[in-house]
């Protein structure tokens, strides 16, 4: 029993890191622009398809495609920003939510029309096998994904705290008007934040694909998980997102092991409502 508990805590932690990485892009966009992208899950789904096709045609392992998908997705983010987000920043909230919902419906069904509902999984993957640490078995694909997640988060954290651009981003996030008075081009910061958020999605998607498959409907799951993490983290920076991801991952793993696997989403959702109820600024919010 103890072994099972230990094994699943580890499973949960590894998955939690991945969840945190998936949510990180959303958290960054939310932090800087104060916009919740409802199409986030669909962005993840499209990125997973990109990973699949690139890996198939270039015959390279899925994990390596992150190097290609992340820049593509950065540009994709800029384009979406210019076409849609730029027009709704600062308008009334209903329009913001509605526009991204439109995007969500559109992307999901374009994917269906283009690639049909057939689930796609990577064929070439070097990340197979597992390492055994005492009583715990750790699959290498999950371990790599978790390590990359933490690495990406550290890199982002360093970027936000040690570079001029990063500091400008943070300033925009803290006080848009003051930042604009200081000569920061707020619009450009928004575009940067959106592009960066998407690039992170690109990285996350590549590593999810090392152990998951994608179909046009898979966006909803990833969207839901990301929203919950962002609510939990509040405006708590990178560490808040990581901690929230870990909590979510462990709650899920333990729930599946010791109760009913079918109810895991329900448990996570109750957590979501509970946090909104008692700590509406998130568990790790600074404001």
């Amino acid at each position: 029993m103890l072994e099972l508990l230990l094994q699943n805590l580890v499973n949960g932690i590894l998955m939690g890191c991945v969840y945190a990485l998936v949510a990180l892009g959303l958290a960054l966009q939310f932090g800087v622009m104060d916009i919740i992208n409802f199409a986030h899950g669909e962005f993840v789904m499209i990125a997973m398809y990109l990973v699949f096709w690139i890996s198939l045609y270039l015959a390279i392992p899925g994990s390596l495609t992150s190097l290609i998908v992340a820049p593509i997705y950065f540009v994709f983010g800029l384009v979406v920003y210019k076409l849609v987000i730029d027009r709704i920043v600062g308008t009334y909230p209903l329009a913001q939510i509605a526009a991204t919902i439109g995007l969500m419906v559109l992307l999901r069904n374009l994917a269906l029309a283009a690639w049909r509902a057939q689930p796609r999984g990577l064929q070439y993957e070097v990340l197979r096998g597992s390492v055994t640490l005492g009583p715990v078995v750790v699959p290498i694909s999950r371990l790599t994904a978790a390590l990359v997640s933490v690495g990406t988060m550290l890199a982002l954290h360093w970027f936000l705290t040690h570079t001029r651009l990063g500091l400008a981003l943070r300033a925009t996030s803290d006080d848009m008007q003051a930042a604009s008075l200081l000569g920061i081009n707020v619009r450009r910061m928004f575009a940067l934040a959106f592009g960066l958020g998407c690039a992170i999605i690109g990285i996350a998607a590549a590593f999810i694909m090392t152990f998951q498959q994608v179909n046009p409907e898979s966006g909803l799951t990833w969207g839901l998980i990301s929203w919950i993490i962002v609510v939990m983290a509040g405006l708590g920076g990178v560490s808040g997102v990581l901690l929230s991801g870990l909590i979510l991952g462990m709650v899920e793993a333990l729930e599946i092991t010791f109760w009913d696997p079918r109810a895991s989403l329900a448990v996570m959702y109750s957590l979501f409502i509970l946090i909104l109820w008692v700590k509406p600024r998130g568990l790790f919010g600074r404001r």
Binding site: F38, P93, L94, V231, R262, L265, A266, Y269, I273
Partner: peptide, 23 residues
């Protein structure tokens, strides 16, 4: 509290009730 949280909470509630009624 942000309007977006309400929208998120409501759309998630659909998924969750579906799962709960399944269980």
């Amino acid at each position: 509290l942000k309007e977006a949280w309400y929208a998120l909470a409501t759309i998630s509630s659909v998924v969750v009730l579906q799962k709960l009624f399944l269980v």
